[in-house]
Amino acid sequence: MSRAETASGTGAEASVRPRPLWTLGLVRDELRTTFRRWRTLALLGVLAAVPVLVGIAVRIETGDGSSSGGGGGGPAFVSQITNNGLFLVFAALAATLPFFLPMAVGVIAGDAVAGEAGAGTLRYLLVAPAGRTRLLLTKYAAVMVFCLAATLVVAVSALAVGALLFPLGDLTTISGTRITFAEGLLRALLIALVVAASLLGVAALGLFVSTLTNSGIAAMATTVGLLITVQILDQIPQLHALHPYLFSHYWLSFADLMREPVLWDDLTRNLGLQALYALVFGSAAWARFTGKDVTA
């Protein structure tokens, strides 16, 4: 075989086989597209505003020097904010996790495929050598990055507001032990990562819904509707046997990271449940998308 034939064959294989660097470029382009949308910026802006509102409300309420009582878990982190501004990070994450954070993720995930189909750009994306599986994985990777970005926006905003309005320093865990401010920051980062991981189930569910329709609005509304439905089911005592299987049931287990020693049981259940939802709905999304008739 001549060198020209060899080069021609190599070029043909290269055009069919996506290279790893090309795949990274695809992910980069998807992230750029996602985070440049006004909708994405608006969602991040709303999330950043929640800690500001919580911090100002606590500051006004305790302006006379009083402090609200309560424990230290979940939303009750609010009672500790006046003593240490770092607790605003935990309180803000507890306030946004039940609805605001998953709603934002549901909007982004629901629009991932359906939005492209509705805009007529999905067909052109599939012309590229990435293939449907690689494109779907790229979409999910972008949603996962948004999960992390949204969580960090809440945490950083809360830390900045907490530092401005309240004192910082060593803090007391839920168990009553003292830890240094540096260790508190480390736990805050770990909590933010756990919260971001807690959204992966919603992300996979939204991506699956996005493959079922060509309307981005319908996919976003359906995903948010399912989120609200699951939250309601999780509050009905008569359905207690179902609760451990709902993706939102263990969300607030991140508070156990503020115990000494850390209680890992519910944390591991939460992460395992999110992995299961990601696997099930990710597989369903792949099965649907690979067989989807894309005509627009």
Rank of each mutant, 00 (worst) to 15 (best):
G55M: 08
S157W: 02
H249Y: 12
L101F: 00
V50C: 10
L168N: 10
T6M: 05
T40H: 08
A130M: 14
A104E: 05
G11S: 12
I217G: 08
L279R: 11
V89H: 04
F100M: 14
V280T: 02
A119N: 02
L267D: 09
W264G: 06
R39W: 06
Q231T: 07
V54G: 05
L31M: 11
S253G: 06
G201H: 06
R132A: 06
R123W: 08
L122C: 01
P237K: 06
T229N: 07
E183W: 05
V145R: 01
G73F: 15
A128T: 14
R19P: 06
F77W: 10
P98W: 03
R134E: 04
V156G: 04
N214V: 13
G71W: 15
A94T: 13
L97R: 11
G216C: 10
F90A: 10
I232C: 07
S283A: 15
F99H: 03
F254T: 02
G69V: 04
G65K: 03
L257N: 07
A284L: 15
F289H: 01
V16E: 13
T33Q: 15
G72V: 03
A76F: 15
G55C: 09
V52M: 14
A94C: 10
L152F: 14
R259D: 12
D293I: 04
M144Q: 15
H240C: 09
A112K: 03
C147D: 13
R3H: 08
L137K: 04
G225Q: 02
A296V: 15
M103G: 01
L205D: 00
L242K: 11
D266E: 14
H249R: 14
W22H: 12
T268W: 15
R178Y: 10
L26A: 00
I236K: 05
A275P: 07
D256V: 03
L257W: 10
L212P: 06
T173W: 02
L88K: 09
V280Y: 00
T222H: 07
V154S: 01
Y140P: 05
V161I: 10
T222A: 13
R132H: 13
A94L: 07
T121M: 10
L122A: 02
A160M: 05
P75S: 13
A203D: 00
R123M: 14
T34R: 08
L164Q: 03
F90T: 08
L164M: 09
W264M: 10
A182V: 15
A14Y: 14
A284V: 04
L252E: 09
A284C: 14
D234K: 04
T211A: 09
V54T: 08
A196D: 14
L125R: 07
L44E: 07
P75F: 14
